[in-house]
Amino acid sequence: MGVSPMSSTGVGPVAKKKKLPETRARRPCHEMGSIMLSDEVKKEIDAEARHYPQRRAVVAEALKAVQARRGWVDDESLRDVADYLGLSFDEVDSIATFYNLIFRQPVGRHVILICDSVSCYLTGYEKLLDHLKKKLGIALGQTTADGRFTLLPNACLGLCEQAPAMMIDNETYGHLTAARIDEILGKHE
């Protein structure tokens, strides 16, 4: 049995090391304007925000907008999103670290989400995982040295009728075999 129950998708409570500049006592940090977000991202956030009575509702959406461009959400972007939505850094990070599709650590150019849930388990997911690990030379939660792939376990992808299945970036792949995996990986530079 390869997967320990706690192997996460690599976005859990991360080691909290880097120190941020302190906010001045008299100046709440949420008053500081955002400087970094591109107009395009801001537009996307604003468009989404119109759907909700409260601006904070789009926080996950905003993080995903950043991630769509950078691959992951770094501290600076997170702070920008916080400022743009009138939230604090901690408030946003509390949300960012909850959801598994938001990455708070760098990922490779392609993120492999391999389904580890029951139907895939029953149809031989473990062997495929072993194959993937060997082929990429990484464990779950890791990124290949060349920065090409990150391998993460994912809850049921809703592809049970095509199990075993995985998702790379935005594409889903079912009926996996070792050979098919090799072929699919080959298509991702």
């Binding site: 706690m6 859990g12 909290k16 709440p28 604090s88 990070d93 509390s94 670290t97």
Partner: peptide
């Protein structure tokens, strides 16, 4: 506003983001 809960399941973390 500089404190919170981070992560999920039995890994939830209480403190500051940094």
């Amino acid at each position: 506003r500089d404190f919170g809960v981070f992560g999920w399941h039995d890994g939830v973390y209480f403190g500051r983001a940094q």
